[in-house]
Design a protein around this nucleic acid. Structure first.
Lengths: 251, 251
DNA sequence: TTAATAGTGTCTCTGAGACACTATGTG
DNA sequence: CACATAGTGTCTCAGAGACACTATTAA
């Protein structure tokens, strides 16, 4: 790129070029891919878009896009999140960078993956934008890792593009680990919610049943919940109190 | 890159190009940077190389290098680890990808950072290769994160290049979190070691004092240690038994 | 013998699971 | 009223910290 910018050939620039990749103009393409997760009816869902082009035409891919030359990685991820899923201001965090040669058969593409956690209610009407919410099946416990499957509404297994299933699996592994110490369950719920709803979210993420008593105590003791005094209604049983998430006490 | 490879202009290729970054040839440069950590005398050390060129000339940088076009990210990190620090087969794991525009004043460089854990005995003689082991000062507890400082042997603060101090800080945060559930302390010790030595490593990483009894019980109960029956000698007090790390039981 | 650390036994404290019980809405 | 779930009180169990004590080497 030195001849693009036409800088003066000072020693520093020359030293820089000595260390530089000899295939000077051939940098890998740089993309971001987003694992947008939500929980609905006790199930973990992931947003996928259908690939209309070769390669992997007809399979389902993570929403993604190339990183512009003057665009930060987080900014690129936020842009994709808004452009493809219409979401702003939601939890979005870098996950891992995938860059094996051959992961994309077209050319070398290095993908910085991000994961987002979104309240299911905000993802209504995404089908019209061509986004499908696939139902995640995670056949391993805890953070051991492994394959995941994605099903459509009828329970058919969806073919995923490139190494995107691996990216999804890693995001599940990450949020399972993070759930213990970080307030991420709240990201998947509306502003006020019952403890039962929060527990359902945790159970969907962890794929296990959680002890009710212990979960209540742990959450209330965490200092991250504030009772609103209001209760749910029309539920066919004693209504539970609604809580609100209070940003951060101490970690 | 389509005109470089001169592929036939099939519809798939065209669709690909439609979605493509308009600044077609200007991809960011892609580099790996390594946080090579070790523990010596109860102190956490990080390997740094002096920058001989502008920008940030004279400051200390993480060993790094550009990713070749046909080279995987892990492979690039392993190559840098061997080329710059002469280490093979040590613990090496991807950390985070830093890609803010302007983090390198020359051009857009996206850096996939890795961290490596190496037994201090293997890092002898690195000074001759121009590698300095800086002493890490971490002025925050637990995984709260924040700034870190790097000192030289005389205790003077070293100036670090680019955003490398931030990368080092994140690696400390990461291994502190990982120490609880992953067998990474062993990476920093020789094949056989005393429980006291292992505790010293943990204390250096966490920056706290650990309860001896609890630490012993926890380690022995983890099933990751095997007693060798041998003991250290010439230590001026009762010699401790030497243990060996047994790869993985169950997590 | 003394200094210094290794290693053991035991008590207490805390947090999670288990379980029984009460509370309160809908139908 | 019955039913279903919310929410509370308490017992037990397991793991961590604290502490006292014994063991073993070098000097």
């Amino acid at each position: 790129m030195s001849d693009k910018k036409q800088r003066s050939p000072d020693p520093a620039e020359q030293a820089f070029l000595e260390n530089y990749d000899p295939t000077e103009f051939e940098h890998p393409s740089l993309a971001v891919d987003l694992v947008i997760l939500t929980v609905r009816d006790g199930e973990l869902l992931v947003a996928l878009v259908r690939r209309d082009d070769h390669p992997d035409k007809g399979t389902w891919a993570l929403p993604g896009g190339f990183v512009a030359m003057q665009e930060g990685l987080d900014a690129a991820a936020a842009r994709v999140l808004e452009t493809k899923a219409g979401q702003r201001g939601v939890f979005l965090e870098q996950l891992y960078t995938f860059g094996e040669p051959g992961r994309d058969p077209r050319t070398r593409v290095v993908s910085v993956s991000y994961y987002a956690l979104v309240n299911a209610a905000r993802l209504q009407g995404l089908a019209e934008r061509g986004v499908l919410l696939g139902r995640l099946r995670v056949p391993w416990k805890g953070e051991s890792g492994g394959r995941v499957d994605v099903l459509d509404d009828s329970g058919r297994k969806l073919a995923t593009a490139f190494d995107h299933a691996e990216i999804i699996a890693m995001s599940v592994k990450r949020i399972r680990g993070k759930l213990d110490y970080a307030p991420i369950g709240f990201q998947l719920l509306p502003a006020t919610f019952t403890l039962r709803a929060l527990q359902n979210v945790h159970e969907a993420i962890l794929g296990t049943v959680i002890n009710k008593d212990s979960f209540r105590r742990r959450m209330l003791a965490s200092g991250q919940l504030k009772a609103t005094g209001k209760h749910e209604s029309a539920v066919g049983h004693r209504p539970a109190e609604l809580y609100r998430f209070t940003r951060r006490s101490a970690v």
